[in-house]
């Protein structure tokens, strides 16, 4: 059950931890965007150096990032193999039926592999150094301009933070209900597929019922403490933009410039 936890935040303290979460959030997406600008060995190598530098500055053990690759292993393998064997070429190294292995194909496969590594590393860096609640606060702050078009920004942000808060609660509840049904003779992981799926009905229904009652209780508790959405709510966690965030932006501009430069060398 522990594996299900979204955004495995790792408590720590370093420059990356102290950056404004909004900036981290935006840079992560920006970086994922510019990864697709890289087009040669030099530019990929440069991006890799950048990511490794960020990991170094964050003071988080590199092993956590390598572990982050593991759940994606099959997807990476499949995509890389697809690129390696299906890139058409006039100069194949190896050929069998519809499979072709060529230098071009291998190079493209290596690039794809690099993209995966870069994107997974940078997003792992975000989730390891930013608490889920900071991320949801950032989303609220970033979406604020949408208020002009009557998009319910505060409600969406509230939904996000409640959802995050409920994850551990629901995991506890699930464990409890599973124990109760086990004690009544349910055997999870026994029998055929249909039987296994059926074994989950006695968990899902009570889980549904209790989620509704928890939600109902929460709504009453919030209203009785005077919760009212909309304008004028102050915030307990205030996001602070500081000088180091400005410097980070300057740094990112430099990174982009170098990347564009390297890109033009063929």
């Amino acid at each position: 059950m522990d594996k299900l936890i979204i955004g495995r935040y790792l408590p720590g303290d370093s420059l990356i931890y102290r950056l404004d979460p909004r900036l981290k959030f935006l840079i992560t997406f920006y970086f994922i965007g510019i990864v697709f600008l890289a087009n040669n060995v030099a530019s990929y190598a440069f991006l890799l150096v950048f990511v490794l530098f960020a990991v170094y500055v964050s003071k988080v053990n590199l092993l956590f990032f390598i572990k982050g690759l593991r759940p994606m292993f099959w997807l990476i393998l499949f995509t890389v193999a697809l690129q390696a064997f299906f890139t058409p070429s006039n100069d194949p190294i190896w050929h069998w039926a519809f499979l072709t292995l060529s230098k071009d194909g291998l190079v493209i496969a290596a690039y794809i592999f690099m993209r995966f590594v870069l994107i997974i590393f940078i997003s792992t860096l975000l989730t390891l150094t930013t608490t889920p609640i900071e991320i949801s606060d950032s989303i609220e702050s970033i979406l604020k301009p949408l208020k002009v078009v009557k998009f319910p920004v505060t409600q969406v942000a509230l939904m996000l933070s409640i959802a995050l808060r409920f994850v551990p609660l629901l995991i506890d509840e699930t464990t409890k209900i599973m124990d109760a049904q086990r004690a009544r003779g349910v055997d999870f992981g026994e029998g055929g597929l249909i039987k296994r799926i059926k074994a989950f009905v006695p968990i899902l229904i009570p889980l549904f019922v209790s989620s509704f009652s928890i939600a109902y209780d929460l709504a009453i508790a919030m209203e009785s403490r005077g919760y009212k959405d909309g304008e004028g709510r102050s915030k307990y966690r205030v996001l602070n933009w500081s000088k180091r965030d400005n410097w980070t932006i300057v740094f990112m501009v430099l990174v982009t410039a170098i990347l564009l430069l390297l890109r033009s060398y063929r």
């Binding site: 509840e173 409890k176 109760a180 049904q181 004690a183 229904i205 009570p206």
Partner: peptide, 14 residues
């Protein structure tokens, strides 16, 4: 052989 009534067992009804 060993029956078990949990805390708030009503949450196991489905």
């Amino acid at each position: 052989k060993v029956g078990m009534v949990f805390q708030f067992p009503e949450s196991q009804l489905f």
